[in-house]
Design a protein around this nucleic acid. Structure first.
Length: 576
RNA sequence: GCGCCCGUAGCUCAGUUGGAUAGAGCACGAGCCUUCUAAGCUUGGGGUCGCAGGUUCGAAUCCUGCCGGGCGCGCCA
């Protein structure tokens, strides 16, 4: 049980006592009552809004009710003072034993500190990356990959059973283009001069090995054959080769999905039919024509065509959406809807991580999931573009010319940990700049460095203590820690709340911001030792105090490691 | 025309799902340090939270309407 849960229970017990004493009605709705650290530390260690929330429901005023609750809380051994403040907050100051014990808990629980059972083992499916299998991963995919993976990890820490999933779009026109591009490389591998890659085909060199492998396997029998003879095998071979590349790219970031779900297999298994039938049974499918798109120029041609449509407008979409094309094949949406239906069979909650350029399709898929699952929780997180900069100048990229910056290049240049941390230093729906120079800069302006540096300093203490402070006692007396030092413990003790609130909000970046705050507080404490050697963590003349401070440092280090572990970042032992 | 996202200090961004006097870094002002507890430290100024209403004990946060910016709006994927 976390500190916060414990005090929420204390508040609950205080309210129970008032009910028993007849000072509060028994059927009082306690919804909205919370126990949180106040924004301003001078207000105390914890604050509850109980009196403000309940006053109206209990037919009294907040400060009067607070006057009843506060003494009950003040009577607790863990509480040194309970003050009524402002509109009716009850501010609690906890005795320093509480914080000393909490530091002990951090060290005892180690990497388990901050884990929560909030999710109660609920199954959450997180689908992320899902880049088209038509080439290596580029930086456009990177942020979604990191955010999705960190979110998955965050949810695991919060007690959810997480499945990491990748949807392979191997059924549409783009993989046909891939197959044709591979065919060209196949002819090239057999000695043909193919010249310039035609417009509309994938130009990248990464298809050359695919062409060679196809040439080796098939010889020249498909060189002049009609497309219908080679398209399917070439497509399958090329997609398989692309997935090998993509998995290797993801592995560079430390990302491993549990499931790679194939769109082609979803279709082959008849899932879209099943989904459409489920919708049809609810009267949500009909034959009809779409309106002329508003984005068309007035002189563009438009002919209404009869299509199979899903009534997504009943769930807030702007127009109904086709699930089948006029040639009878499934639309992307038709298959994707079925895929989500399938995912929902094995999960209590679904989360998708999408690029912001797909924002326009969120409503239809939410509509479909709502209709097919009777409102199972489903969140689509949109991840904004990352602008790559080199010395302040935007890096020019053109996918058509094939000179996009690959994820592998970036990871090789700056390292996995820097990439992952940096991608989490902004709210995911906000645009972000990624400057090659700044992300590796050794300065306090660089949060990656700043957090790692704090951890490295803590490690250096443990490396040096034996030689600098020889007679270190076995046991630590944490009552030797002063108020400034306990303030660090208080900040560290917020970690479990950060994990829970970040998991609840599906916002892994909060962990990064929290670690930055924690590192800043640690550095500030450390810097006091510059002016006053007695305030250093290692004090040669005082082994007992050193022992206590070492525990403090170890606790902070543990929290940094736990937070970084959620982000998928390794903690630095020392700075290069 | 419609939809989505955004609008917080000069700049880049946080803001604990509705809490108390709205924060951090950069930049700017002042002082300190020249150091392996290194890759600076301390401290100060700086705000109509786009605007106007509404909801309530309480709003940067929720609702409505405007203003401004971005993105999207085909049987594509």
């Amino acid at each position: 049980m976390t500190l916060y849960a414990r005090f929420a229970a204390h508040v609950d017990a205080a309210l129970d006592a008032l009910v028993t004493g007849g000072q509060l009605p028994a059927d009082l709705d306690r919804k909205g009552v919370s126990v949180e650290p106040p924004r301003d530390p001078s207000h105390g260690d914890l604050a509850t809004n109980a009196a403000m929330v309940l006053a109206k429901r209990a037919g009294t005023n907040p400060r009067a009710l607070a006057g009843l609750i506060a003494p009950k809380l003040e009577a607790l051994a863990e509480v040194s003072a309970a003050e009524i403040a402002g509109p009716g907050f009850i501010n609690l100051r906890l005795s320093s034993d509480v914080w000393q014990e909490e530091l002990g808990t951090i060290l005892a629980e180690g990497e388990g500190y901050g884990r929560s059972d909030m999710g109660q083992g609920q199954r959450v499916n997180v689908e992320y990356v899902s880049a088209n299998p038509t080439g290596p991963m580029h930086m456009g995919h990177c942020r979604g990959a990191v955010v999705g993976d960190a979110l998955a990890s965050l949810l695991e820490h919060a007690g959810y059973a997480v499945t990491r999933e990748y949807y392979v779009n191997d059924a549409g026109g783009q993989v046909d283009v891939l197959a044709r591009s591979a065919h060209l490389r196949y002819r090239e591998a057999l000695g043909e001069d193919i010249g310039e890659i035609p417009e509309g085909l994938y130009p990248g060199d990464y298809l050359k090995p695919v062409g060679k492998a196809l040439a080796k396997e098939h010889g020249d029998r498909f060189v002049a054959a009609p497309e219908s003879e080679w398209l399917v095998p070439f497509r399958e071979a090329a997609v398989a080769a692309m997935l090998v590349m993509i998995k290797a790219d993801l592995a560079l970031l430390g990302i491993h999905h549990d499931i790679f779900a194939s769109e082609a297999e979803v279709q082959a298994a008849g899932k879209p039919d099943a989904a459409v039938e489920a919708l049809r049974a609810r009267g949500l499918i009909y034959e009809g024509a779409l309106e002329r798109p508003k984005s068309l120029d007035p002189h563009d041609e438009w002919e209404p065509v009869e299509l199979t449509l899903f009534k997504s407008t009943q769930f807030g979409d702007d127009q109904d959406r086709p699930v089948k094309k006029s040639d009878g094949s499934w639309t992307y949406f038709g298959a994707d809807m079925a895929y989500h239906f399938q995912k929902a069979q094995n999960a209590d909650q679904l989360i998708d991580i999408w690029g912001a350029d797909h924002a326009g399709t969120v409503k239809r898929i939410k509509a479909a999931v709502a209709a097919l699952t009777d409102g199972k929780p489903f969140d689509v997180k949109l991840v904004q573009m990352v602008r790559l900069l080199r010395a302040g100048e935007p890096v020019k990229m053109s996918k058509r010319a094939g000179n996009f910056v690959t994820l592998a290049d970036v990871v090789r240049e700056v390292g996995r940990d820097v990439v992952r941390f940096t991608m989490l230093t902004r709210k995911s729906d906000a645009q972000m700049d990624f400057d090659f120079a700044k992300v590796v800069e050794a300065s306090k302006d660089n949060p990656v460095f700043y957090v790692q540096y704090a951890h490295a300093r803590i490690r250096s203490l443990h490396r040096k203590v034996a030689s600098e402070v020889p007679d270190l006692p076995e046991a630590a007396d944490l009552s030797l820690l002063d108020d400034d030092e306990l303030a660090l413990v208080k900040l560290a003790a917020q970690f479990p709340r950060i994990v829970e609130s970040a998991a609840d909000a599906h916002e892994p970046h909060r962990v990064a911001f929290y670690l930055h705050d924690l590192a800043a507080a640690f550095h500030a404490q450390w810097n006091k030792g510059n002016d006053d050697p007695a305030r250093r963590f290692l004090v040669a003349q005082n082994p007992a105090l050193t022992r206590a401070r070492l525990e403090l440092a170890a606790g902070i280090g543990q929290i940094i490691r736990n937070g970084l572990s959620i982000m998928g970042v390794a903690a630095a032992e020392e700075m290069a």
